[in-house]
């Protein structure tokens, strides 16, 4: 049997993923994350009188802390499996990916285990985040003057 014919045979037999349900879940959970972020921002600015720019940093730190804590407590992976991109795309996903790698390689030592592997999943986020920030910054300066 040739490869093309076999691929057709395989396609006929494998189930379709529920793209609509998955997208709806990610949309709702991601949106809910946005609400939580906004709530935190409002709490920090109105109750604690922190300027908005600094409050947004505190809000991000809070979400990163919670994402890491929930991963370490061992239930965030189940939430991620369920909500998919709803939890992976927000900053919680970044924290979760780092913490899970750190937990996995802890037994191999602090340097060669955690140090060498903590950015295993998030290394590309940092690399391409920095590179694209540079180019978008450049575009902004050239087109809008900063």
């Amino acid at each position: 049997m040739d490869k093309e014919k076999y691929q057709n045979l395989v396609d006929k037999n494998i189930p379709k993923e529920n793209v609509k349900i998955n997208a709806a879940k990610a949309f709702l959970v991601g949106g809910f994350m946005g609400i939580i972020g906004q709530l935190l921002l409002d709490i920090y600015t109105t109750w604690l009188n922190i300027p908005t720019k600094e409050a947004s940093t505190y809000m991000i730190i809070t979400l990163i802390f919670l994402g890491s804590l929930f991963t370490a407590l061992g239930f965030f992976d189940k939430w991620v499996s369920w909500a998919n991109c709803g939890l992976i795309i927000p900053i919680t996903g970044f924290a979760h990916a780092m913490t899970s790698a750190a937990l996995e390689y802890r037994k191999e030592g602090f340097v060669l285990g955690i140090g060498a592997n903590i950015f295993k999943l998030t290394g590309s986020v940092i690399l391409y985040g920095v590179v694209s920030a540079y180019f978008f910054g450049l575009i902004r300066v050239l087109l809008f003057g900063g």
Binding site: T71, V80, S81, W82, T99, S100, E104, L121
Partner: peptide, 17 residues
Amino acid sequence: EKQFRYPNEYGGSKPKV
């Protein structure tokens, strides 16, 4: 899982197959 895919605690979702 650790060797072939992602860290165990990452728990990324998998397809039905």
